[in-house]
Design a protein around this nucleic acid. Sequence first.
DNA 1: CAATTCTTTTTTGTCGACAAATAGAATACA
DNA 2: TGTATTCTATTTGTCGACAAAAAAGAATTG
Lengths: 230, 230
Amino acid sequence: MSDTPSERKRGSGARMVYDLLRDEILDLKLAPGSPIDEVQLAERFGMSRTPIREALVRLSGEGLIETLPNRSTMVAAIDFLNLSPLFDALVLMYRVTTRLAAQNHRAEDLPALHRLHADYAASVAARDTSAMIATNAAFHAAIAEAGRNPYFTGLFSRLLDESRRMLHLYYRSYEEQFPQRFVDEHAEIIAAIEAHDLDAADRLGKAHAEAIVVQVQALFSRNDRLDIPL
Amino acid sequence: MSDTPSERKRGSGARMVYDLLRDEILDLKLAPGSPIDEVQLAERFGMSRTPIREALVRLSGEGLIETLPNRSTMVAAIDFLNLSPLFDALVLMYRVTTRLAAQNHRAEDLPALHRLHADYAASVAARDTSAMIATNAAFHAAIAEAGRNPYFTGLFSRLLDESRRMLHLYYRSYEEQFPQRFVDEHAEIIAAIEAHDLDAADRLGKAHAEAIVVQVQALFSRNDRLDIPL
DNA sequence: CAATTCTTTTTTGTCGACAAATAGAATACA
DNA sequence: TGTATTCTATTTGTCGACAAAAAAGAATTG
């Protein structure tokens, strides 16, 4: 299990490690709390510790890993006890980005939205949870981009990343449920954006976000009960 | 002009460089577009390039510097042509953080707010523009903290940083105007927070933000005209 | 046998050096 | 003289090595 591409472009090392570690963290391939060993990573990627370190610094800046000075660094924990700030921020960003997309999008943004919408619908039909999570995030990130406010886009991306880990947990527990409903809501959102209907986009974005939040909250409140072993 | 503390704590190097560079960038001591030379910084701080590099990676992650691969890195430019996204985000975060502070603050948060409010009033009275900028940012950051949503706090801090550079430009051009008005508005905001009046906090936060935005916009629209040399 | 001190081991933070990449200067050529 | 090409110089990205810190384990002492 060693990827050692002996030929690499100069300057791409840290970027590659960053992207890969980020995906592994967000897809729960690296469990929250897992220790991260620089030397081990250096061997795995066939490079020195320096670019590994740069990737870790960036991941730390985004809060995806936590670093104890002079000691271990590990995958950031998921704070299940303080989910409401995350949900509050998510709902607001869903609203704002959807509203801004209705206001600021251009015609050339729409094909990408339709394509990502179709991708999501396809992954739902195929019952591919990983693809669902990825395509859903890409869909909403594209909406945010169409809203053309990089500050909102940045925060929203971060929130989507954070919830990506939680959605993996969610779909692990409820593999039988596949949200056709969300596909329909996505279609409504696109329609509101295309119609430049700011208020409808805002309202739909809010409802969409809250529906997701309710489902995830239901999961975790149920998990709380299961935590008591008999 | 060389600070060479020959004795330093292990692990504090990058942090120190980061903090100092960050302040110099935000206070316009390093002009936007200025080149940043790693070797020069290494000599200036009496350390190797490695911790310098770590600081630069973090600054880059926050968008305070821009890096051309394999080539120069420089202080991020201020995008005067696209200010409305910044202003939009600022106004929304002013609203949200103030509202959340009214909702979630605890009694122990209030002394700090009053103290920071007094600090700001003092710096306005003393006509110390640098202190005004710093204490105003600290005041609103404290309000955001009292709102207890780290995601909003994070974005808001970043927006305050970004506007910190612009406020320096603003006060450079208008040293004669000192906003006693903002001091009064701060007092109203504190009152609304203490009264747990969410809607009033929201409304005051919005009005406060928009007043600032209007002033800054007035500056830059005037500058646009002055840009034409005669 | 418990608690404390000392030693070893592991992992990080820092360093100096080298190689790749690029910009600019110098050169060759039409 | 203008343009293309080569050369040089500067700056970055990467490497291997070393030293400081902290944890884990061993030894000592009461």
